[in-house]
Design a protein around this nucleic acid. Structure first.
Length: 884
DNA sequence: AGCTTCACG
DNA sequence: ACGTACGTGAAGCTA
């Protein structure tokens, strides 16, 4: 049976605030009311196990009740700041718990609760209303129970019609009459002076209602008669004020308040942030994995350290390996050392070092590692794969990676280490690696007993995590995304990285020579103009020269001093010749240090190639990132830098580099998810989207769009994708905020579907606490309801941007999985080498060029069916530069 | 280690 | 009034 719990947020937090002793977190923020509220909430969850929950808050200062009676709640003390500061904390915590909350301008929490309890009652729910306010007893019915807090908030006493009868001798609705007669000083409801609970009850037991009492004043006597007659209007008005309005129009449906248990991956951190340690421990998620926690302790008790003789003990149970963990050292997985391996199998744990694995006796284990049908569960199997590969050991069959699962469950959590995951899921703790091994130069592998114990704990935690995360992935509908996209992709990425891309070193050194000469000239000129030599790479020294010595106007400041970024320098260029030289120096120096010297350092001695590492668990939107070296930011916009691309060449003679990129994928995704007719039509006809936007926004024919209009429209389109703000657009276009705001308004007037999307997605985020992509990838936005304007605005822009950027990321990932399958199926020799967000780069033998020219864009365009076509453009050449 | 700058999508 | 455009990684300087 469905059970709805409706909580009167204001009433409970108020009571909690006054009932709880002051409690402050380490940053000095008082948290006692949130703590009291949460304690009560957790107790209610355990006791009542609701399927639906809503916490209602009062909104705005003026409710419809004030319209008839201006003094309503007049006598009330102003909310103390120590309490009002706690509202945002509570709202943030509720969001993290996955509990819906709601407020509506002009209405009190009572009315929202009254309305929803009625709806739910009619829909056959059992309803529990939780409040500190006796008025709410009027809501009770056969299926609606009212819980009143007693003694602060620690206990809740529940009332149905029977209990109300027992306590007051009244029907639930007569509570309103009771209030009408006796009033309520806390809400400044007058009632009849001199009539308290006792008298009011006596009157009601005799006459039944305020109206009946007033109709029979002749039967009353003396002072009482006089009072009732003089204050008849007060009584009627008081009754009206006390009546909870049960027919508010809400855009809140019962399905919006479904509660499917505390959301473990966000509830834990949110409680930790508030420093509610005792609650963290008693939290149901700790209970949920409590037995797993015990298993961790047990599993680590028995670790067998294998040598060449004893390796057979593991070989015998290889069929039953539950978890594999390879402990590595080093940031770059291509160069990672392997400290040791641990296998959890048949309730035992087996540890070995690399020399054992690589010995003759290790052969069956190596075969097991290489067998794709032998499924592996572990942490960061992508890294494991690469590390083993460079040690001459092949790896296949990754089935469940707890790091990748942790990332999907909360992509913004930077700590996806096992130690972090263990803490988050309330498992037995793992010491941080830094502490066990030491960090940086102090890194040292400890004795084998310490080491094997440490990694055994890791294996045990992985084993405990797998079922918990699997359940969470199912609950959040991300299991398909995980098993069918991210897990397969991790193997594909590893393959691309092992393959690497060949660098023409002579060509790169040649470019380095050219840059070196240019830098020397520029530096000489700059020093001579400045009249002194200084460190050009120091923004501080450069600032002193420009602003103190040469007296140029200060355009912008940074935290630490003058800003000297390119935007500032552009504005300073007219004032002094030195500025242009500095800009040019910056450009070339960047190319030299990052792209010539940086790239040279990353070329593998073994292969002569660069083997980047695509990180699959860092970007909050679902994108990949690239490291060691970053091959996703190789210059292209300026010709000087673009030349760098010439050094990326095919690894076999006669082959070509082929690149295919999506055209306007983010705006096409926006067209699809916003369902904006105009935007969709633009893509159905494959128009130049910026020109089309300009023509629509400025109301001119497409052929009359000049370059300035197109440039503005392009900036607006970018802004839309980023989560538009007038300020951001004004900065980008160098116009005033007002003008930018006008552009945006005009844009939204034309693209009304986009406006609706932007409004709706922010609303959804405020309600759910997260946004998602077309493939159900989630991103939680805990700050979406923050009272701090900056934090909230940032979260709102993120809410707008993430579904767009994230869906585009989903699409190209799908294309990569499908591309990999197609290359295999057709036994093509072409190799996928790089992904650059909306672009895939391959090396292709000559006889496959024609095939790949067709195949790659075809697969990219069909990767996911949208309501607008996707478009991919392909080109190829003898190096990456030529593939344009 | 944190800041500033700048390369990419 | 509030002060930013979304997402990354690398290099060099400063404290």
């Amino acid at each position: 049976m469905d059970k709805l719990m409706l909580i009167d947020g204001n009433s409970i937090i108020y009571r909690a605030f006054f009932a709880m002793p002051p409690l402050t977190n380490s940053s000095g923020q008082q948290t006692n009311a949130v703590y009291g509220f949460t304690t009560m909430l957790l107790r209610l969850l355990e006791e009542h196990k609701p399927t639906h929950i809503l916490v209602a808050f009062d909104a705005g200062k003026i409710t419809f009740r004030h319209k008839g009676y201006e003094d309503y709640k007049g006598g009330r003390e102003k909310t103390p700041p120590e309490l009002s500061q706690q509202f945002p904390l509570l709202k943030e915590l509720l969001t993290a718990f996955g509990i819906a909350q709601f407020e509506l301008d002009g209405y009190e929490a009572d009315d929202i609760i009254g309305t929803l309890s009625k709806t739910a009652d009619e829909a056959g729910f059992n309803v529990l209303v939780v409040t500190g306010d006796k008025d709410m007893l009027q809501l009770a019915s056969d299926h609606v129970t009212v819980g009143l807090t007693r003694k602060g908030v620690t206990e809740v006493e529940t009332y149905g019609p029977e209990q109300i009868q027992e306590r007051y001798g009244l029907k639930p609705l007569q509570i309103i009459d009771l209030k009408g007669l006796m009033g309520d000083t806390s809400d400044n409801i007058p009632g009849i002076p001199g009539v308290g609970e006792k008298t009011a009850l006596k009157l009601l037991h005799q006459y039944g209602s305020v109206e009946e009492v007033l109709a029979h004043t002749d039967e009353l006597k003396g002072k009482m008669k006089e009072r009732v007659e003089t204050h008849a209007d007060d009584a009627r008005m008081s009754k009206e004020l006390a009546t909870i309005y049960r027919d508010v129009t809400l855009d809140k449906q019962l399905e919006d308040v479904v509660f499917s248990g505390l959301r473990a991956e966000t509830a834990g951190p949110a409680l930790a942030k508030l420093e509610f340690k005792s609650l963290l421990e008693r939290l149901s998620l700790a209970g949920e994995v409590g037995s797993a926690g015990a298993d961790v302790e047990e599993a680590t008790a028995d670790v067998t350290v294998l040598d060449e003789q004893r390796i057979s003990e593991l070989v015998e149970v290889l069929d039953h390996v539950d978890v594999l963990h390879v402990e590595t050292h080093g940031d770059n997985p291509h160069h990672a050392e392997i400290v040791g391996l641990i296998f959890a199998a048949a309730g035992r744990q087996f540890f070995m070092t690399m020399d054992v694995l690589q010995s003759e006796a290790g052969t069956p284990v190596r075969e097991w590692l290489a067998a794709p049908e032998r499924k592996k569960r572990g942490h960061d199997l992508h890294r494991t794969d690469l590390a083993l590969h460079w040690h001459g050991i092949e790896f296949a069959g990754a089935e469940f990676d707890v790091q990748l699962a942790g990332y999907l469950l909360d992509p913004t959590d930077a700590n996806q280490t096992l130690s972090g995951l263990a803490a988050k899921y309330g498992l037995s703790s793992i010491r941080p690696d830094d502490e066990v091994f030491g960090k940086g130069a102090k890194y040292k592998v400890p004795d084998v007993d310490v080491l094997s114990d440490h990694v055994a704990r890791k294996a045990a935690v992985i084993e405990a995590l797998v079922p918990v995360q699997q359940a969470e992935l199912e609950k959040t509908e991300m299991h398909k995304l995980f098993h069918e996209l991210e897990m397969p992709l991790s193997r594909i990425l590893a393959d691309m990285e092992k393959q690497g891309i060949l660098v023409n070193v002579e060509e790169l050194r040649g470019l380095g020579k050219e840059f070196e000469a240019q830098i020397a000239t520029l530096v000489g000129e700059i020093y001579s103009i400045a009249g002194v030599e200084f460190n050009l790479n120091s923004p501080k020294q450069l600032g002193e020269i420009l602003f103190d010595k040469l007296g140029l106007p200060v355009i912008k400041k940074t935290k630490t001093g003058y800003s000297t970024d390119a935007e500032v320098l552009e504005k300073l260029a007219p004032y002094h010749d030195i500025v242009q030289n500095i800009l040019q120096y910056r450009t070339i120096a960047k190319l030299q240090s990052t792209y010539v010297e940086g790239l040279l350092k990353e070329i593998s001695e073994k292969t002569g190639k660069v083997h980047t590492y695509f990180r699959q668990t860092v970007a909050a939107t679902g994108r990949l990132s690239s490291q060691f070296p970053n091959l996703q930011n190789i210059p292209i916009r300026l010709e000087e830098g673009r030349k760098i691309r010439k050094v990326f060449v095919p690894s076999e003679p006669g082959w070509s580099i082929l690149a295919a990129d999506y055209s306007q994928i983010e705006l096409r995704v926006l067209a699809d998810i916003s369902d904006d007719e105009r935007l969709k039509e633009a893509f159905v006809h494959d128009m130049d989207i910026h020109t089309k936007t300009a023509s629509d926004v400025f109301g001119v024919q497409a052929e009359d769009v000049d370059s300035n209009m197109r440039r503005s429209a392009k900036a607006v389109n970018f802004g839309i994708v980023y989560g538009i703000s007038d300020y951001g657009l004004s900065q980008n276009l160098n116009i005033t905020r007002k003008e930018a705001a006008r552009f945006i308004d005009q844009y939204f007037d034309v693209f009304q579907g986009v406006r609706r999307y932007m409004d709706d997605i922010v609303k959804d985020a405020k309600r759910d606490g997260y946004v998602k992509t077309l493939l159900e990838r989630r991103r939680y936005l805990p700050e979406i309801n923050a009272s701090n304007f900056n934090l909230r605005s940032f979260a709102e822009r993120t809410a707008m941007n993430t579904p767009i950027q994230g869906t585009a990321a989903d699409i190209i990932k799908l294309a990569m999985v499908q591309m990999d399958a197609a290359l295999r199926k057709r036994s093509l020799r072409s190799r996928m080498l790089l992904q650059v967000h909306d672009e895939l780069v391959f090396e292709v033998p000559p006889e496959e060029i024609e095939t790949m020219k067709e195949l790659v864009p075809t697969i990219m365009e069909a990767a996911l069916k949208l309501s607008v076509p996707l478009k991919a453009e392909v080109s190829y050449g003898s190096n990456w530069y030529e593939a344009k």
